[in-house]
């Protein structure tokens, strides 16, 4: 057995995943055929029905078209889901174990709403919450879990005709990552992307302090000495000293670097001796190639999935969470 990761991946591909890919490809082809044939039948049937009912009015034929599409999806939706589940279980699950034998992948689990709320990064009321693609494991001394998360709240408005309209707003969509932190602490420290200060400078910082005092959360604005970090983030904490104990000068640098590599908004909180990261990626992780995409799965695709799995390790290493020189084991 070779120790070169690229060769190991090649080996895994040749011995285990190639047959799986072929099966998945066969499943995809069959599914496509089914979708096309049933689609044509549905189209013909709906067309005929529309012609028959058209004389009773346009609204009824509209109803028939909607019914046709719905029935077509009811017949086929399950199959599409199964194809997706097969891909996730057999390919992504295997890749996660390949990456690190201690890691586990559960496509239908995720960071629970309770955990999400307990992080206190987002304080809005949550009306709809969904999660998928949970990865758990331990790297060195650090236990972690992360998944995709989508939290939303709704607003309801009534227009002039008295119709109620519900609008959904995203609170957070992306990867939510929870890891054991390497220092003990009792309070709560929250690090958020800084909007006010990057736009308004010192005035923005003043407004943040006033705003926090008015929100009665018991948190104070923490002004830190790293100018680059301060430009990217704003920090609130229940304890000025503890916030600095957690956000050591080196962790501030590491977070700045991490934020720059990720290229998207990153919010963090430190609660109950845990670090929570909310990374607002737009990408939907670990999805099979699109059904209509004709190219077959290849070794290079695996590299991309592995890149996403590697985030598990990146957070622990880049934030140096395995440095255990303090009293916490």
């Amino acid at each position: 057995m070779t120790t070169d990761p690229a060769e190991q991946l090649q080996h895994l591909y040749e011995t285990e995943l190639r047959p799986v890919f072929e099966e998945l490809e066969a499943e995809r082809q069959a599914l496509l055929q089914r979708l096309l044939i049933s689609g044509l039948i549905a189209l013909a049937a709906t067309g005929l029905l529309v012609l028959l009912v058209l004389r009773w009015g346009f609204e009824i034929s509209f109803f028939v078209i909607v019914a046709g599409i719905t029935i077509w999806w009811i017949v086929n939706g399950g199959r599409v889901q199964r194809y997706r589940a097969n891909f996730k279980n057999h390919v992504v699950g295997r890749l996660v174990r390949f990456f690190n034998a201690t890691m586990r992948y559960e496509p239908n689990s995720g960071i629970s709403q309770a955990e999400f709320s307990a992080s206190e990064i987002f304080r809005q009321r949550i009306d709809r919450y969904s999660h998928e693609d949970l990865i758990t494991g331990t790297i060195g001394a650090t236990a972690f879990r992360f998944s995709e998360v989508h939290a939303e709240y709704k607003t309801e408005s009534t227009d002039s005709k008295g119709r109620r309209r519900t609008t959904w707003h995203t609170i957070f969509k992306g990867i939510f990552y929870i890891a054991d932190f390497n220092k003990h602490f009792n309070g709560r420290t929250i690090v958020q992307p800084d909007v006010a200060q990057s736009l308004l400078g010192g005035l923005g910082q003043m407004l943040q302090g006033v705003g926090r005092k008015l929100s009665f959360s018991g948190d104070e604005l923490v002004k830190l000495e790293d100018p680059e970090f301060e430009k990217l983030f704003v920090v609130y904490s229940t304890d000025q000293i503890e916030a600095r104990y957690i956000l050591s000068t080196s962790l501030m640098q590491r977070l700045t670097q991490f934020r720059k590599t990720m290229g998207v908004d990153v919010s963090l909180s430190f609660v109950n001796s845990k670090i929570n990261l909310a990374i607002a990626t737009r990408k939907n992780l670990f999805e099979p190639p699109h059904l209509w995409q004709s190219t077959r799965l290849q070794l290079s695709d695996l590299q991309e999935y592995l890149q996403d799995i590697k985030l598990a390790e990146d957070v622990v290493n880049e934030l140096n969470l395995n440095l255990r020189i303090w009293t916490k084991a």
Binding site: V222, K223, I241, R244, I325
Partner: peptide
Amino acid sequence: QGSLNEIEEQISAARRAYNAAVTD
């Protein structure tokens, strides 16, 4: 050694907090 590192880290955090308060 762990305890000492911890205390040193706490002292440094307290000094930084003091410096922030003084600057303010």
